[in-house]
Every structure is written in C-alpha cells, then in structure tokens.
C-alpha cells in the first residue's frame, strides 16, 4: 500500500504543497522541451527531404558551436572589430560550405541507393566532423559567447504561489528563438515553392526529378537549413554548460522526441519535444526519488514507447497503409 501511495498520491500532494516548485519544474520542462524540439527539427528536416536519418546531426551541432566560438576567439585575439557578429556570419558561411560539400561528396554519389546506405554515410560523416573539429579546435571545452551575441543573462525571480519561481533570461531567449525558428520553418515548408519542392523530393526522388526539381539544390538547401538549426541549438545548449564534444550526447535526446512526434512532422517535433521535456522533468522530480534518481535518461524513451503502443506511427507521423 505504501508504494502505491508513493506513486499515486504523494507526488500530487507535493505538487499541491509546493506549487512554486511545480511551476518551476514545468518551466524547466518546457525550456528543455523546446531545446529538444530544436534538435529534433534538424533530424526531421533532413529526413523529410531525403528519407535519411542523419546520425551526424549531433556532431553538426557541436561543430557549428565550436566554429562560432573558435572564430570569435581567433578574431578577438587579433583585434578584429565586432568579432561576435563576424564570427556568426562566418559560421553560417561554414555551414553552407559544409552543406554543399555533403551534397557533392556524400549524397550525390549515393543517389537512388537504399536508405540504409545513406544512413551509414551519415555515420561516416559523424567521424569526419569529429576528427575535423578536434583537429581545428582541439578537444578542450570552450565558453559560449552568450553576452557577445547579445543574449541576456541573469534571471527574473517572481515571488508567487508561496515561493519563488525563477526564469533564466537565457532560457526565455532560447524559447523565443526556438519558437521563431520553428514557425519560420513551418511557413517555409508549407507555403513556399522551395518548401513544396522539398516535400516532393521527400516523397519520391525520381518523381521529383522527372518534374524538373533539382535534387542537388534541394539537398543543399535542406542540409544548410539543418546546419543553421544546429548552430542555434549549439548556442543554446552551449550556454547551459560549455561547448565541448560532450554536447553530442544531448543530441541523442532527439530520438525519443522523433519516435513520439514522427520523423516527418515539424509540429510533431515540437509537440514531441514538449511532451518529453515536461514529462522527464516532472518524472525525475516527483517520481525519480522512488527509483533512486537519475531516471531522466530512460524515462524519455519510456514515455515515447508508451505513446507508440497507441500510435505506432508517432503523434503526427504518416500512417503507412500497404495494400496487398
């Protein structure tokens, strides 16, 4: 009986007794969720356009953040004016060059190959980017240049609900930027000519080619867009800790989000991210102590799998109907 009480009653009693902590946990979950959604978005973009699960998305995030900070440090050392702004522009340029290179040297030779071949190619790409990143920037952690990028610092502390709710300004900025990016990408996919072409490529490479859509151009655009998303994600996660290769691990958090939201849906990535973010924070905070803590790493997968029992295609994934 005691265990049932601890599982089904006590957590809700705690929520009622300290509503400020509940609000804080919800906020942390929402911020985490938005950031997960941003990572998942990078995966979704590429999956939509090429049907490939891009294993390299995590390292792209690290590479983008390292490039930004590395360029900034170099320019600051050499007295270049406005180093942060220039570093940001140059990093975007680097992500574009990366997208073109990936299209030319990885994807183009593999057109019409089975998806698993492309998937394995992204494994190779991961190791290339890890090596390149370590060669250029070294393995030592770097500090994210949040202030230089005009991102706010400090917190907004509110004495409400009989306690304190603290909102970090950087988290608010992360939520705003992520929301704006998600909205922009949704409009881009749904309402622009390139967006429609991109969806056509995702449906069928050969059919898209037959109506005059340039596969190469679309792939460059989509990998470049995923690179920009990786940069934004790297800045936000880097600000929470530091910029190092450990950030790559965080990208794996996008997997349960994708399982939940579906691999092809932008709204799915967002809703999935929020559900996973809030679910794991509440789970860890209220139910974690029952299991000795540290349940976040598997709870996200548990939540995703529980949803899959009812919707195998994910919340917003396309239902696959095969007629025999």
């Amino acid at each position: 009986m005691d265990i049932l009480y601890k599982i089904f009653i006590d957590p809700f009693m705690q929520m009622g007794a300290a509503p400020d902590l509940l609000v804080q946990a919800l906020w942390e979950g929402l911020v985490g969720g938005v950031l997960y959604a941003l990572i998942a978005l990078g995966f979704v973009l590429i999956f939509k356009a090429s049907g490939v699960f891009n294993f390299a998305q995590g390292i792209m995030m690290v590479f983008a953040a390292l490039t930004l900070v590395g360029l900034y440090e170099w320019m600051a050392r050499h007295g270049v004016p406005a180093p942060a702004a220039i570093a940001l522009v140059l990093t975007i340029g680097v992500m574009y060059v990366l997208a073109v290179s990936i299209e030319k040297f990885v994807l183009r030779p593999l057109v019409n190959q089975p998806d698993i071949i492309l998937f394995m190619a992204t494994f190779g790409l991961t190791f290339v980017l890890v090596g390149l990143g370590e060669l250029i920037f070294g393995g030592e952690p770097k500090q994210m240049i949040t202030e230089q990028l005009w991102l706010p610092k400090g917190s907004i502390d509110m004495k409400i609900l009989g306690g304190l709710v603290s909102l970090q300004k950087i988290d608010i900025a992360a939520a705003v930027i992520a929301s704006a990016m998600v909205a922009g990408l949704a409009v881009f996919f749904q309402s622009t000519r390139i967006g429609r072409a991109l969806r056509a490529v995702a449906d069928d490479h050969q059919a898209a080619l037959s109506v005059g859509i340039s596969l190469n151009q679309i792939w460059v655009i989509v990998w470049f867009t995923a690179g920009i998303v990786a940069l934004a994600t790297g800045i936000m996660w880097g600000a929470r800790s530091d910029v190092s290769f450990a950030l790559e691990i965080i990208a794996l958090k996008a997997l349960p989000v994708l399982i939940l939201g579906g691999f092809t849906s932008i709204p799915g990535a967002i809703v999935g991210g929020l559900i996973i973010g809030v679910g794991e924070k509440l789970g860890e905070f209220y139910w974690g102590p029952l299991l000795g803590g540290g349940i976040e790493s598997w709870l996200a997968y548990f939540i995703a799998l529980a949803f899959l029992l009812f919707r195998p295609q994910g919340l917003f994934g396309e239902k696959i109907i095969e007629r025999i």
Partner: peptide, 22 residues
Amino acid sequence: KLYPVAAAEMQNQSALWLGVRR
C-alpha cells in the same frame, strides 16, 4: 541524499537541481 547523474544527462541537470532546491 544521493543525486545520480547519468552520463547522457551530464549537461542537462536542471531537474536534479530542482530536487536540490526541494
């Protein structure tokens, strides 16, 4: 009080520190 941190959550400790606050 024990607060374990999985290697995958090294940079994602906000729930743990909420526990510290509680």
